[in-house]
Design a protein around this nucleic acid. Structure first.
Lengths: 239, 239
DNA sequence: CCCTATTTGTGCGTATGTATC
DNA sequence: AGATACATACGCACAAATAGG
């Protein structure tokens, strides 16, 4: 089964074999891989070699390992369209998964320079900052810190806390509809906060998205910095 | 200058001080920060504290550390619009920087399942795979592996190698214009290949973009997987 | 709550082939 | 050609986390 000494390393062949089994549906998302000991025996190699193969699959985001428990197949990433009408819950529902939003906390404060610029305010103008986390089928997809101008959106934290929906919270403040004005996408590696909120290891990749939403009149109503678990999401543009 | 024992750690205050100096223009991109010893003296703290502050700036992509040389301020990230007409060189020139493309290598092979699907081919249909790297002002921005159907685009590697321009290479094959059909954005952490080609450390964040371009008739002509150094680029959508 | 078996994480040491200077 | 560094692959031992009784 393994071709030794032919230019392709053993650990890479093992990784490709397992990857093919995942792609082929032999290993479905959430199932546990055979233990390292079992794979060691199956392929007739050293445990380190198996571990290197698994590490490469972790780096590709295909599996996740938990010490003491095992190695598990990751779910297919959520396809997340970025457009003028971007709504988390609609996107999740559209892929037959169950969305949820959770209020982590909020506080009122003066706008930073960056936020003031995005929302067309002056620095130190009052805003309410909301921190929230977002889930699909109970799995963390992203967390975000969001700024809303005051006093217009003073009710947002309360309504968001009750409904878990930004759309509902904005509607309660007299904004029946809104659209995405700007989106900036970067990436970073998970720090301790990301790791805890997204339930991933520190060092895993995170997509950082700064966005501004505006009301139907084009007035900026919301600035957000979202942190997406890159292993669980693919952003799509157009197409 | 430093407020000790007030809930904000010392290293965080140092990091914010340096960050403000960068944002305020006191430290311009490319300049070297004072040595760790100098910062230690300036802030009256232990060298470990300074190092922790610098590490946090590295994690935010604001500075880059080279052992034996020093700590340098990173350039402001390139703003990279994703749209129907996405051209690397036009984007770079539009920001008063100097673009360059370099052919890393190419080979002809049968299309993988993924590429065949994207280009509307059958698996194993012949394609030419081109690896290239892209620079702004001599700094690596991205590298990519690109697939073109054969025999229509057999000349692409030769023309691209001579001109460093995909647009020119496609024009030589009778495609005067093209547009972006689909874009999928993910993120990963730099592996050894990324680190070498982008001149970054392993573990730094990388934006991975799968894209398909089509000719004016809507026929897919190019599939690409680009790896962008996330510290040096911000993708923008709309706005 | 403790204990234990299972499973992954980490470190040491060895040997070999390959790329690089 | 020689020296050096590096990645690969193997063997063994123990630490740490998990899960179940």
């Amino acid at each position: 089964m393994l071709a030794r000494g032919r230019g392709v390393t053993v650990w890479r062949q093992i990784a490709e074999t397992i990857e093919a089994e995942i792609a082929g549906g032999g290993l479905t998302p959430g199932t546990r891989l055979p233990t390292e000991a079992a794979l060691t025996e199956r392929f007739g190699v050293n445990r380190h070699t198996v571990r290197q193969a698994i590490k490469s699959l972790v780096d590709k985001g295909l599996v996740r390992v938990t010490q003491g428990s095992g190695t598990y197949v990751e779910a297919k990433p959520l396809s997340y369209p970025i457009g003028r009408r971007t709504r988390f819950s609609e996107i999740v529902v559209g892929q037959a998964r169950d969305p949820a939003g959770k209020l982590l906390g909020f506080r009122e404060m003066g706008a930073s320079v960056e936020i003031a610029e995005a929302l067309d305010l002056s620095p130190e103008d009052p805003v309410v900052m909301v921190e929230s986390a977002h889930f699909a089928d109970g799995v963390p997809i992203s967390w975000a810190v969001t700024a809303f101008p005051l006093p217009r959106f003073a009710e947002v934290p309360q309504v968001y806390g009750a409904t878990g929906s930004i759309t509902a919270a904005l509607a309660a403040c007299g904004v029946p509809d809104y659209r995405r004005a700007t989106t900036r996408i970067g990436a970073s590696v998970a720090d301790a906060v990301d790791a805890k909120r997204l339930e991933i290891a520190e060092g895993r990749p995170v997509l950082v998205i700064d966005s501004v939403n505006v009301d139907p009149e084009g007035v900026p109503i919301q600035w957000a910095r979202s942190h997406f678990c890159a292993d669980r999401v693919r952003l799509t543009v157009g197409g």
